[in-house]
Structures are given as structure tokens and as C-alpha cells.
Design a protein around this nucleic acid. Structure first.
Lengths: 168, 168
DNA sequence: TATTGTTATACTCTATAACTATA
DNA sequence: TATAGTTATAGAGTATAACAATA
């Protein structure tokens, strides 16, 4: 089987890597409901300072209606709790339970193992570089996109194509 | 707004970058149906030597049932054609039309512009490194996963966790 | 009037299975 | 029997809109 032209297609390559990451990580996240998304939410609850559901949804670029049953299931699994926000009676502060912290630490260790495995074909320094660049790019994207505001996103896209090429 | 701990979550970061790539590229692919997937298929038809639908589906990790209506729409749009395979009367050889070649060249130029824009926050050499490492990782993943065989994938996962941790 | 969170509905995407025609 | 391709159906995932409570 010959190796054809490497395609040089970034979208395809990123999709390939991310799909593999998902496949492998899902198999390792037995204690967290909703697979990788549950993991991302729990991780954000513990590591970031994003107390409300809306803030979590915005950070993770998940719809807030999805966030509702995501948190529902994490709460049912005893990993997080919804507590009233003292400053805003509409909002709920999402906090991890003791078990939630424990499960996350365990999950993070397993995810690290998976990543070790998935990127085993790369030299250690290349792997570190890839992780660092991915992280940096993601942070840049998040910063340039204030609060993942859909209006701003549309405006930016229009600026990009700078013309009435409206499709759909 | 303070910058919290960088999360160090590869899955989140990859998802962020890929989502942004998709958003931007979709807005630029007016002539190709089915958005980025149509683009990937057309690109594979032209650049890779994957004559049959099954080979295309396997390469792009798309289900062969999906490949059917993907090619249906590309064919309706006059970008590819299904021609009989002289060696196997079950198979169809997928070839790009003249228009398909033209549309792809145009799309690739626009996608390159989008990528230029999406990664404008990275220094040129960092961007090149990121592209090269992503491509290399994707190729490694494809090679280690013979023909994207689901049985092999399951076996590999079981080997990874090396124990009866069967979930679901 | 705007926002947080919830619920219900509808739409899209994907996965599964069944079918045909070939091998 | 196995494979290439097609079709139909069901399921998961996602987006939209409407609603209640609060700001």
C-alpha cells in the first residue's frame, strides 16, 4: 500500500487527531457521564473560576440548553452540586463534590495516559511542542472571540469575506 | 477579566481549533455541497488515489452509507462522476469533472486564506510547525490503524486498558 | 427589557440493518 | 460466503423557541 501525497489538509488532520483522542478517552471515562463533555465540564468546574452555568457554557462553547442536562447528569452522578448564588438569585453556582474532585483527578491521570499512547509516535519534544501550540492557538481563538458571542462571530465572518456572498 | 489556569486540556484545545476551522471554512465553500465533508471528499478524489467509494470512506473515516449521499450531492453539483470500474462491476470509480478540479483549486485557495486568518496569532514558524506536527500525527494515526478497521480499533482499546474494564 | 435556567419541539447527523448485484 | 453500493429506519446530538423567575 503506497503512501500517497500527504494531502496537506489541516481540517482532515485535526479531525483525525481529535477523533482518536475522543475514541480513546471515552473508553477511560467510566465514572463520568456524558463522556468527554462531562469530563470537560467537570474539569472547568474544578480548574476554572466559572461559577454559573452560563459562564461554563460560554467557555466550553456548549449551548446553555445542553448545559442543563449535562449538569443534571453530573449532579445525579454525585460529582457536582447546584447551589444558589448569593449575589444573583437567578443563577446557580456549580461546585464539585468531594467525590467529583476525586473522580476528576483519577480521570485526568487516565486521560494523560491515553494522550501518552495516542502521541507515542511523536518524539517527546515534538509532542510537547504540539500540545503547547494547540493550547496557545485555542487560547488565542477564545480571546479573539469575546465570550463566544455569536453576533461578533457573524460580523467577523462577514468582514472576512467582505462581500454579499451570503450563503444559506 | 483574569486569565485563569490554562486548563492544559488537549481535547478542549483541539476542539476549539477545529471548531473555528469548520466555522470559517464552511462560509467559504459555497460551490461545494455538504460543507467541509464535501470538500474533504473532493480533495481526496483529486489528490489521493482512492478510486472506489469504500476506499474514500475508509480514508476519511466516514461511514460508507454516508459516502453514498455525499457523492450523490457532489455528482448533482457536477463536481464528480461515478464511472464503472472495469475490474470490478460492483465498484464505482469516483473521478472529478473538469469543473470539480476548478472548484477544488478555488476552494483550496480560499481555505488557505482562512487558515492564514485563523492562525494569524501564531508566529509564521510556529504556524508551520503546528501544521507539520498535526499532519504527521494524523498520518501516524492512520497508519497504526489499518484501514480504520473497527475490530482492530476495539482490540487496541482493550489492549490499552488491559483488563476486564468493559464499559457499556 | 434583559438574563439565568428549564423544558419541549424540531432538525440534523450518524449508526444500524436490510437489500441488490456482483465477486 | 464476502464485498460494493444503496436505501430505510431509528437513535443520538444539536439548535430553536417558549417559558418562569429574577435582575
Amino acid at each position: 500500500m503506497s503512501h500517497h501525497a500527504p494531502a496537506a489538509n489541516l481540517g482532515w488532520a485535526l479531525g483525525m487527531v481529535l477523533r482518536r483522542w475522543h475514541q480513546r478517552v471515552e473508553h477511560v471515562l467510566g465514572d463520568i457521564p456524558q463522556g468527554t463533555r462531562g469530563f470537560h465540564v467537570l474539569s472547568a468546574v474544578v480548574h476554572q473560576d466559572l461559577p454559573t452555568q452560563a459562564a461554563l457554557a460560554s467557555h466550553l462553547a456548549i449551548d446553555r440548553t445542553v448545559m442543563t442536562y449535562l449538569i443534571d447528569e453530573l449532579e445525579e452522578a454525585g460529582l457536582v452540586e447546584r447551589t444558589p448564588d448569593p449575589h444573583d438569585r437567578r443563577a446557580r453556582r456549580i461546585v464539585a463534590t468531594t467525590r467529583g474532585h476525586k473522580v476528576l483527578v483519577d480521570a485526568e491521570r487516565q486521560v494523560a495516559d491515553v494522550e501518552e499512547f495516542v502521541f507515542r509516535g511523536l518524539a517527546p519534544e515534538d509532542k510537547a511542542t504540539f500540545l503547547e501550540l494547540t493550547q496557545r492557538t485555542a487560547n488565542l481563538i477564545r480571546e479573539e472571540d469575546p465570550a463566544t458571542d455569536p453576533c461578533v462571530a457573524v460580523k467577523e465572518v462577514l468582514d472576512l469575506s467582505e462581500g454579499p456572498n451570503s450563503r444559506r
